[in-house]
Design a protein around this nucleic acid. Structure first.
Lengths: 141, 141
DNA sequence: CTGAATCCACCAAGATACTG
DNA sequence: CAGTATCTTGGTGGATTCAG
């Protein structure tokens, strides 16, 4: 923070925003993290419970995802050395607070998904027409 | 699920949330989309201007990212058939509204990044100790 | 039950060169 | 200036097997 110069700060913040958002997106933007986090939203779960809830996730990916979440302090891991062994995973407070921006994304998704789908349909149509045009010139090869 | 409607709806919503969030994360969660969107936040930009602002993006990736954004109606493309050619890219209103949840993510990132980094450091330390333990048994390769 | 380890397939993304 | 085309590669994730 080099000063309170509003116009300058706006530009700087824009760059910093990129960094920060990209960083968070890298953490939660993979295939399974969000689904696992949401699975744990309601209550702590055991390893196999998560696998059942998430549905489709492999053991490998579940283990990797959980380890990543634990690593970043979003999920806590509690091991009970019983037989058979039992491990509980639970959202930390940090993990719980992540739900807020995630909810914000969800709201956006619900609200604007129809518009996005419509746009995609329009785009596909335009592309189809353009493709037909192209074909008349792509004679050789 | 025999209880009140509220609890049932909560579970159902949880699944739907996953879908929606994952879907949006798939759109904006790639390497460049967010950076391009934020580059366009302030004002429309030309192709080369974006490439300069984003810094590090290749022509190929810029083209692909822009096409994806245009496809989903988040960015509009305006071509001026002058010489040399000129193409402006501009956030649509849909694209602009995406800034809201992105800002929410940014806020979370700024607020909780220190905690995440601290957690990661602690985790690395614990892992290092565990790794030392392991080594004593990993005699034969 | 809760993982770790290995192998493999696929795709996003980078580098480079070319085009209108 | 604004892309497209082709090749290559590194990482993500799936399937399977082994272990405590």
């Amino acid at each position: 923070m080099s000063g309170a110069h509003s116009s300058v700060r706006k530009v700087d913040a824009s760059r910093a925003d990129c960094q920060a958002i990209t960083e968070i997106l890298d953490r939660v933007g993979d295939k399974w993290t969000v689904m696992v986090v949401r699975a744990l939203e309601q209550r702590p779960l055991r390893y196999n419970e998560i696998q059942r809830v998430v549905d489709g996730i492999s053991q490998r990916m579940l283990t990797l995802t959980l380890k990543g979440l634990e690593r970043d302090g979003l999920v806590s891991r509690t091991m009970y050395p019983t037989i058979p062994p039992r491990v509980d995973y639970e959202l930390t407070e940090l993990g719980n607070r992540l739900m807020v921006p995630l909810q914000s994304l969800y709201d956006w998704a619900v609200k604007h998904r129809p518009a996005m789908l419509a746009a995609r349909k329009r785009f596909a149509e335009k592309e189809r027409l353009a493709g037909a045009q192209q074909k008349r010139f792509a004679t050789a090869k």
